[in-house]
Simulated assay, not measured.
Amino acid sequence: MDVLTDSTTTAGPTATRAASSARTPSPRHWLRFRHAGKTGFGTLAGNTVHEWRGDMFGACEPTGTIHGLAEVQLLSPTAPSKVIALWNNFKALGEKLNLAVPAEPLYLLKSPNSFAAHDEPIKKPLCEGKVVFEGELGIVIGKTCTAVSETDAPDHVFGYTCANDVTVADILNRDASFAQWVRAKGFDTFCPMGPVVATGLDPATLTVTTLLDGQIRQHYPISDMRFSAAQLVSLISMDMTLYPGDVILCGTSVGVGSMKPGSTVEVEISDIGRLSNRFGA
């Protein structure tokens, strides 16, 4: 199971740490897992999982227990109260589609039933329609925030993860009286995330690569975002309270395409890892 593309960026366990990882000096890769029927969390170092106890977003410490990566079942890296997904947040795609530059973030919510983990199959909906992949960066909130400033926003970010904002494209505008964003993006398993949450990163330096059956379909820099990570956290927190574990999907860029049953989609982000899911019946 290849979940990290650069294991040298993973630091081993240390003493209890604070909730905010924005100032963490070196990247660490956090994950949630199931082992022997129990759910736990910890850090990934190479092919080993170092178990921790406590609150992943607050005070926690290593238990000293180490599992082989192949011995655990990876879960969605957080259990968010909500996932917020951006529309028209990348200049390249907005210009290609001739979309007006938004004055504020445009977003929707992905339903909890859509959350899925690395290696979990993406279920084919019972309805007909073209199902598309959208490789994205996810911002994971680490500290409750309401109406935070752009300057303070990074202190409320825990880390970053890979995500696939799966959509039944044909549903979106099928009814001229109502754009069906929630339904189109809310089917079971339509929001794979993971495999880890990486802390201590500068999101503006990251690049998203999406592969369909091994072929690169998307390759774009996060620096092309219309609203930066800090701006997204700040502006969205003006609308609603963000809680630890909540995820903001930053939107996608050019190269979005359709999947057919049996296809495998991988979303790889430098210094985070590679999220892989097979689309099937």
Rank of each mutant, 00 (worst) to 15 (best):
H35S: 12
H35R: 15
H35N: 06
K38C: 00
T39K: 13
F41E: 06
F41D: 06
F41Q: 07
T43R: 12
T48G: 01
T48M: 05
V49K: 07
H50F: 12
R53D: 11
G54Y: 11
G54F: 11
D55Y: 05
F57V: 07
A59S: 14
A59N: 13
A59P: 06
C60D: 13
E61N: 02
T63Q: 08
T65K: 10
I66A: 09
I66R: 13
I66C: 05
H67Y: 15
G68V: 03
A70K: 10
A70V: 02
A70W: 00
Q73D: 15
S76Q: 08
S76T: 12
T78W: 03
A79D: 15
A79Y: 00
V83H: 02
I84C: 06
I84R: 08
W87Y: 12
N88K: 11
N88F: 04
N89S: 06
F90N: 11
A92I: 02
A92T: 13
L93N: 10
L93V: 01
K96L: 12
K96W: 01
L97E: 14
N98C: 05
N98K: 15
V101G: 01
V101Q: 13
V101C: 09
V101I: 11
A103D: 15
A103S: 15
A103Q: 14
E104I: 08
E104R: 14
P105Q: 10
L106Y: 04
L106P: 00
L106Q: 14
Y107M: 09
L108N: 10
L108E: 04
L108P: 00
A116Y: 03
A116P: 08
P121A: 13
I122R: 07
K123G: 01
K123E: 14
K124W: 05
L126V: 14
C127D: 04
C127Q: 11
C127K: 09
E128A: 14
G129F: 08
V132S: 14
V132E: 15
E134Q: 14
G135K: 07
G135L: 04
E136N: 10
E136H: 05
E136S: 09
E136V: 01
G138C: 06
I139F: 02
I139H: 03
I141F: 05
I141Y: 05
I141E: 06
G142N: 03
K143R: 15
K143F: 02
T144F: 01
C145G: 06
C145F: 03
V148N: 08
V148M: 07
S149C: 09
